[in-house]
Nucleic acid binder design. Structure first.
Length: 836
RNA sequence: GCCAGAGUGGUGGAAUGGUAGACACAGGGGACUUAAAAUCCCCAGGCUUCGCGGCCGUACGGGUUCAAGUCCCGUCUCUGGUACCA
């Protein structure tokens, strides 16, 4: 009979639940180094249910957690739900169903699906970000940010998604489109709450050195933070008392600055524009305001701009240079104004060419700067006191000059911008602020938290920058906690990123009603030792969470400067797709396979098999429920780990999982068919076992699950040759299986007379001496080519091996009559002769 | 454009500078069966040879080395990030 996974998996899941096998406590008898916090990025419970991508990371952390437990660790391994979010709210707009109802339903589905996979979560620690008992503390942390001056109100133009009808953070805009829905974002002036993440820019950058994260993710964060060292330079404006301040990384090219540009949104623009230019400039500003970010970047590399009518004085040579208004200068970076050095900057060069502005070479160039910009380094020319100097020396000297004249100074700029934190939507944490006509903005007192969401009749956002909450007068109108006068509540809500900024702390102490997390418990577990999730959060969630954590650290609320010590990104699970010659993809149900080739059923056109993301339209989405129904959880888990390295993307193969099923089933049938015996295993089998324990231990601890599974397959192939299973070779193998196929392992363990749960057993040890074969194959190379393979004893001496090698018939053919000029012997591996 | 990462059989993938292709999938052959499914055993990078063997082969071109998938230089392709950031 084949493995009755339904029955056995249900049996053990029930056992684990009833016996609270995976319940974890802050047991002080575990020393600090024997405690581990293993965390998954919690899911957003969408209506579509679990995707095959979810179990990938969850299985990896599950195997690792179980492995650590068996190695004597106290392991915190929780799961919860990132439950605020737009899909539930959009569904509410369509159907009138309260998002809380939809969300609860979806969470129940997710929980059921996740539990069906047999993970060792401590479910008593489950959290949900939309639970008022949870978001009470999200609001509390916001209040701490506010008290620290890290939250402020702003009216600056922001990215607005017309489809989601809400403002977006810079991090949520991808190539000019909304990261969530793909709509093209617009610019809008809307009152916003903004978090001063820029105040932490330097520390967010520096502390990346403290964590064990993939270099690629660190790099993405470094790029996003975008630190650049340079100088602030003041340019006097002719006829005005004021100066125009610019940021430049190349103050040494100041002699080549032939004009200036201010962004259309620059605050000084009214003063700069002369009466005769007013009409034209106003027209230009209006046009620029209409453009989206995408228009200003992708589509319009063609430079546009207008002359303001004013001139600035170049501080190094006193020359008058024109000030232009152009949208290639961004208001949000630096000071929103630049000095233009067209000879050595491509953008400035294009602009200068278009508007016939002078181009002066100040770095010795290998090209004619009148025909193209020279953006490489060069010795300074035409630069007065800098002539002949290299870049570093010239920057230093220029800075000295500017500082002495009080016209500039060294400074640092960051690309990172403050975090637009308010959303004009319903289904999020209400921002706990009250607007009082006499006291101004006042925090909701801590005792009144959580500030819960009111019921609304319509979930439809107004689209005018007000959330649906603005229409609930009974909720909006309140009394000021300070003066007791009439006041109004803030109607914006928090973005989805708010709740996920600190959930890993709440897992530590999920039911505490006094504090967001108990101090001692926090110290017991933090930081997170391993955090596994998708790379899509490389900048967004991981940057925001680090920011909040650092604020909490500064407030003495948490004990570590960084929340996540080690991060691993799992690769995406992709699918096969079929491509026509014109590169368009054909839905899987329209594809026919004949003799290993693929054809379009309709046109008969031959198709190429390629790898693509799973998508509904391609009909290649794999549903975990169906996979489990067919093969069970153990096989599903094992297959996802066997597909390839955790960190890389790999395509789902329906035949691949069948192979893994055969492996699981083979183990089962072996246990059914072969008697267990107390007889000693053969030496050969013991060697295979010890090699397997060694390989599986090493590979599990380093998350190389695919090769660990390969080794277990090799061992099963060895076991299958036996008539009976020696317990001494069988029981340790069940322990190795336990993290990978826990249900099967429990059942097999019970059948050997072992006491449940096998998860509480000790991980097996191996004997190094038994991992080495007695006979070793040694390769003989002549001039780098393999000419013979010798079987020699592992104890054979170098001389013996060399003499054996020389006697080999095939080797003789290549060395006879030649002079051996070099002999290389790598013990246990090879002999290499160099002959002439 | 810039910055990362990756390119290995028909497929997924293995390989501390030391036998390239472990383990699997798909494929071929055989056993069992009335037959099929399931299962079990065997074969299997390409070319060549009756065979021993030989030659070629890790995207492409060079280099270092007794020895390179692995290290170095250059090129191409793909994936991800970012994009007028001064």
């Amino acid at each position: 009979m084949s493995y009755p996974f339904n029955q056995i998996e249900e049996k053990w899941q029930k056992y684990w639940e009833e016996n609270k096998t995976f319940s974890v406590k802050e047991d002080p008898s575990f020393p600090k180094e024997k405690r581990a916090y293993v965390l998954d990025m919690f899911p957003y419970p969408s209506g579509a249910g679990l995707h095959v991508g979810h179990p990938e990371g969850y299985t990896a952390t599950d195997i690792y957690s179980r492995y650590l437990r068996m190695n004597g660790y106290n392991v915190l391994h929780p799961m919860g739900f990132d439950a605020f979010g737009l899909p539930a709210e959009n569904y509410a707009i369509q159907t009138g169903t309260h998002p809380a109802i939809t969300t609860e339903k979806n969470i129940n589905t997710f929980r059921r699906q996740i539990k069906r996979l047999g993970f060792c979560y401590d479910w008593d620690r489950e959290v949900s970000t939309c639970d008022p008992e949870y978001y009470k503390w999200t609001q509390w942390i916001f209040e701490k940010l506010y008290e620290k001056g890290l939250a402020y109100e702003s009216q600056a133009p922001i990215n607005w998604c017309p489809n989601c009808k809400t403002g977006l953070a810079n991090e949520e805009v991808k190539e000019g489109h909304c990261d969530r829905c793909g709509a093209q974002v617009e610019k809008r002036n809307i009152r916003q709450w903004v978090l001063k993440i820029t105040a932490y820019a330097q520390r967010l950058l520096d502390d990346l050195d403290l964590v064990d994260w993939p270099e690629s993710v660190k790099l993405m964060q470094r790029n996003w933070i975008g630190r650049s060292e340079g100088a602030s330079v003041l340019f006097k404006v002719k006829g005005l008392e004021k100066s125009l301040e610019v940021f430049t990384t190349r103050c040494d090219t100041l002699f080549g600055a032939t004009y200036m540009v201010v962004s259309p949104e620059h605050p000084m623009i009214d003063e700069l524009v002369t009466a005769d230019r007013k009409e034209e400039v106003s027209k230009y500003i209006a046009q620029a305001a209409k453009k989206s970010d995408l228009d200003r970047t992708d589509l319009a590399k063609e430079k546009t701009g207008v002359f303001s009518g004013s001139y600035a004085i170049n501080p190094v040579n006193g020359k008058e240079i024109p000030i232009w208004v152009a949208d290639y200068v961004l208001i949000s970076y630096g000071t929103g104004a630049i000095m233009a050095v067209p000879a050595h900057d491509t953008r400035d060069w294009e602009f200068a060419k278009k508007f016939n502005l002078p181009i002066i070479e100040v770095l010795k160039s290998e090209v004619d700067v009148q025909t193209q910009a020279w953006t490489e380094d060069g010795i300074h020319v035409n630069s007065g006191f800098l002539d002949g100097l290299n870049k570093a020396d010239a920057i230093k000297k220029m800075l000295e000059f500017l500082e002495e004249k009080k016209l500039g100074h060294k400074t640092v700029n960051f690309k990172l911008r403050d975090w637009i934190f308010s959303r004009q939507r319903y289904w999020g944490e209400p921002i706990p602020l009250i607007h009082c006509p006499s006291c101004g903005t006042v925090l909701v007192p801590e005792k009144d938290l959580p500030l819960t969401l009111p019921e609304v009749k319509s979930y439809q956002p107004s689209g005018t920058g007000e959330s649906p909450l603005a229409n609930i007068e009974s909720w909006v109108n309140c009394t000021c906690p300070k003066c007791g006068g009439k006041a109004k509540r803030e109607t914006n809500t928090m973005p989805q990123w708010g709740g996920s900024c600190w959930y890993y702390l709440r897992y530590i102490d999920p039911h505490n009603s006094e504090r967001f997390v108990d101090e001692e418990k926090e110290k017991y577990w933090m930081p997170v030792d391993l955090y596994v999730g998708g790379t899509e959060h490389a900048v967004l969630h991981l940057l925001y969470a680090r920011f909040w954590h650092k604020v909490l650290y500064d407030l003495g609320q948490v004990s570590t400067p960084e929340p996540f010590q080690r991060l691993v990104n799992q690769g995406m699970i992709t699918a096969y797709a079929y491509q026509k010659k014109n590169k368009s993809l054909v839905p899987t149900d329209q594809v026919e396979e004949r003799d290993g080739a693929f054809f379009d059923k309709q046109s008969g056109e031959s198709l190429e098999r390629v790898i693509a993301k799973m998508s509904k339209s391609l009909k290649n989405v794999i549903n975990p429920d169906e996979v489990i129904a067919e093969y069970g959880a153990d096989t599903m888990r094992l297959y996802e780990m066997f597909m390839g390295p955790l960190q890389v993307s790999k395509p789902w193969s329906t035949t691949g999982i069948a192979g893994v099923w055969r492996f699981v089933d083979r183990i089962w049938r072996m246990a059914e068919e072969k008697p267990l015996t107390d007889e000693e295993p053969t030496k050969e089998l013991l060697k295979s076992l010890n090699k397997t324990i060694k390989k599986v231990s090493e590979d599990t601890s380093t998350l190389n699950f695919n090769t660990a599974i390969s080794q277990m397959m090799i061992y099963v192939n060895d076991l299958s040759k036996l008539e009976a299973l020696p317990l001494k070779a069988w029981k340790p193998f069940i322990l190795l299986l336990c993290p990978y196929v826990p249900h099967l392992a429990e059942e097999l363990w019970a059948r050997t007379g072992g006491k449940a749960s096998v998860c509480n057993e000790k991980w097996p040890e191996f004997d190094e001496a038994l991992t080495v074969d007695d006979m070793i194959q040694v390769v003989v190379q002549v001039n780098g080519k393999v000419r013979a393979k010798l079987d020699v004893s592992k104890d054979a001496s170098k001389d013996e091996i060399v003499s054996l090698a020389k006697q080999s018939e095939n080797v003789k053919k290549y060395i006879d009559g030649q002079t051996i000029v070099k002999e290389i012997v790598v013990p246990g591996k090879l002999v290499s002769f160099v002959v002439k």
